[in-house]
Design a protein around this nucleic acid. Structure first.
Lengths: 295, 295
DNA sequence: TCCGATCGTTGAGCGTGGCTCAACGCCGCT
DNA sequence: AGCGGCGTTGAGCCACGCTCAACGATCGGA
C-alpha cells in the first residue's frame, strides 16, 4: 500500500511536474523525491513519469493513477478535519515559549483568544533563553516555541511564517552609525557583534549573527548574551551592536539604543516550531490562533 | 495526515474491536497498536475508542471517522491495483530460490504459468543451501525465497502460508523406529538429529530442529548438513534422523529412508519471503501464481 | 476476597528505512 | 566547448516504528 510520503510525493510531483519545486513544497531534498517515485514505479511495474533532465510529464498510467489517488487523498484529509471538528478536540495543556519580548505579546494574545473560545484548555507562555535554541522542545519543557527561522531539524515541524520583519541594526545612541538613515551589511565589518553562545545550531547563528560580511570582511565579536534583555543591556551600555527585527523598535524601544535600518539584509522571518511527535488538536488550533493575531 | 500504519491500525481495530487480534492481523505487537491509536487520538483531540481491559468500542467520533476513512482507504488500494493492471506491470527479472527439492517443483510450475501469461519476464529458480537461512535475500543474490516458516525478520515480508504439511521423522530403514506406525516428539530423546549449521536464525532452528523434547529430555546431535541432499545422504547412511514434511515422502522418496509420522508435532508451514524493499509488480504476480499452483 | 486469566498500557531500547549531502551525468543554450 | 539547470545515485546518519517485558485493571470462579 501507499505510505503517506509516497502519496504526497507522487501527487505533488504530478501537479508541479518539477522535482525541485516538489521537494521544496514537501520540505525534503530532490534526491528523496527521485528515490520515492522510483520505488513507486517499481511497485506499479511501469513508469509513472516520462522525464529527462529538462522536462517531467505524466505517462498515461501516471495520469490515471493521479486521477484515482487525488480524490482518495482529499477524502483522507477531510476525514481528519471532520473528526477534529466533531471531537471539539481542543483541550489539554500547551506550554509555549518565546525569546524576543514582542513574541511574548503575540503568544499571549493568541492564548487569550483561544482560551475564550475553548475554556477547557490550559496555555502557559514563558520566556526562554536566547542561547538555548530549540532545547526546551527537546527536553520536554515546552510544546511549542516562537522562534526566528530558519529551523531545519528533522524531528521538529515548522509552522508557516507568521511575521516577516525588516532587519535593523541596534547600536548605542552615542555610536557614530546611530545617526545614519540606513546601513549596509558591509558596515558590520569590525563592529563588535553581540551573539548568543550556546545550544543554538550553527546554521541559525550564521544566519542571524554573521561572522563575515558578504564581501568577506570579518565582523567583530562583542560580549555573549543569554537572553534578549542581556543583549539590549550590552547595546545600551555601548558594548556592542546586534541585528534585530524592526518590530522591536516599535514595541519595546529602549532609551540609549538607536534602530538603524539594514538596507541589504533580507527580512527576519518568525514562526512556530514544535516536535513532530507532539502534534495535537490543541497545538494546531494554537498555531492558527497565532496566525490570526496581529500586533 | 495519516500514515499508512495509522490508517491500517485504526481501521482494523475498528473492525476487530480487540487489540490482540488487530495486532495479529497486522503482524505487530499489541503495544504498537495501543501506541498508534493513542497518537491518533491525540491528533484528533478526542478518544476514538472507549476501552477497558475487557471491552473495546468505537466512540461516536471514532465511528464517523471509520465511516469516512474506510471508503478512502479502499479507493487507495483500488487505485494501486488499477495502476498495476494498466501498467501491464509484470516484467523484469525475478530470481527465486528453494532448499527442499519439492519446493523447486512448486516454484518452477509457478514460473511456467507466469511466463506463459507474461512472456516479457525472466524468472530463475535455484536451489540454495539449507544452512544459509535467508542470507541470499540479504546479499542480493535472490529476490524471493521459498522457505519453511516461521520467518520473523523486520526487513523481510512474509507471504501467506502456501503449503502446510504434517511432519514426519526420516529414519534409516534399518533403524528400530522405522517399523513404527507413528512416533511422538518424546521419541526424539537421544536420537542423533541432523541439523543445518550456519546462518539460519536461532528461533528457526529451534522450531524445526529442537534440542530438547517437550518434557525436557535432550535430543542427540547427528552430523551437520549444508543442503537437503546431504541431510538425506546422512539419513540413508544411518548417521542420524531428521524431521521433515510428509510431502517429501510422496515426491522424492529415497530408498533406505523410512518416513514415520510424527504424531504430536504441528504441521510445517511453507511460504515465500522477500525483502520488503524489493516489492514489485512481478514479485506479487509470482506470489499469486505460486499460491494458485498445486503439487 | 483472593486468585488466576485476560487484556490494554507504558517505557526502555533496538534497528531500519526515510532522509541528506555531494558527486555525477545528461541536456539545452550561448 | 563551456556553463547552468535538473534528475539520479550511493554512502552514511538518525528519528521513529517496533519489540519486549513489566505492570495495572477488570472479570470469573472458589
Amino acid at each position: 500500500m501507499f505510505e503517506r510520503y509516497e502519496l504526497e510525493a507522487f501527487l505533488t510531483l504530478a501537479e508541479e511536474l518539477h522535482f525541485g519545486r516538489t521537494a521544496e513544497r514537501l520540505g525534503v531534498s530532490t534526491g528523496r523525491i527521485s528515490q520515492t517515485v522510483k520505488k513507486l514505479e517499481r511497485r506499479v511495474g511501469a513508469p509513472l513519469f516520462a522525464r529527462t533532465s529538462r522536462s517531467v510529464q505524466l505517462t498515461p498510467v501516471g495520469l490515471s493513477l493521479y486521477e484515482d489517488l487525488l480524490p482518495a487523498y482529499r477524502q483522507l484529509r477531510a476525514a481528519l478535519e471532520r473528526a477534529v471538528e466533531a471531537g471539539r478536540g481542543v483541550h489539554g495543556r500547551l506550554r509555549t515559549g518565546f525569546a524576543t519580548p514582542w513574541g511574548g505579546e503575540l503568544l499571549t494574545a493568541a492564548a487569550d483568544t483561544l482560551l475564550a473560545r475553548h475554556p477547557g484548555c490550559e496555555i502557559t507562555v514563558r520566556e526562554v533563553p536566547l542561547d538555548g535554541g530549540t532545547g526546551p522542545l527537546r527536553d520536554g519543557t515546552l510544546d511549542v516555541q516562537f522562534v526566528a527561522f530558519p529551523v531545519r531539524e528533522p524531528d521538529l515541524t515548522t509552522g508557516p511564517v507568521l511575521v516577516a520583519e525588516d532587519r535593523v541594526l541596534l547600536v548605542p545612541v552615542a555610536h557614530p552609525l546611530a545617526g545614519r538613515a540606513s546601513l549596509g551589511l558591509e558596515d558590520l565589518a569590525g563592529l563588535p557583534l553581540i551573539a548568543p553562545e550556546g545550544a543554538s545550531p550553527r546554521y541559525w547563528r550564521d544566519h542571524h549573527f554573521p561572522r563575515r560580511t558578504p564581501s568577506g570582511a570579518a565582523v567583530g565579536r562583542g560580549p555573549a548574551a543569554a537572553t534578549w534583555q542581556e543583549v539590549l543591556s550590552h547595546v545600551s551600555a555601548g558594548r556592542g551592536v546586534v541585528p534585530g527585527a524592526a518590530l522591536g523598535a516599535r514595541y519595546h524601544p529602549r532609551p540609549g539604543i538607536a534602530y538603524v535600518p539594514l538596507r541589504d539584509a533580507p527580512p527576519i522571518e518568525y514562526g512556530l516550531v514544535w516536535p513532530t511527535a507532539a502534534d495535537s488538536a490543541l497545538l494546531r488550533a494554537f498555531v492558527e490562533a497565532v496566525g490570526a493575531s496581529h500586533l
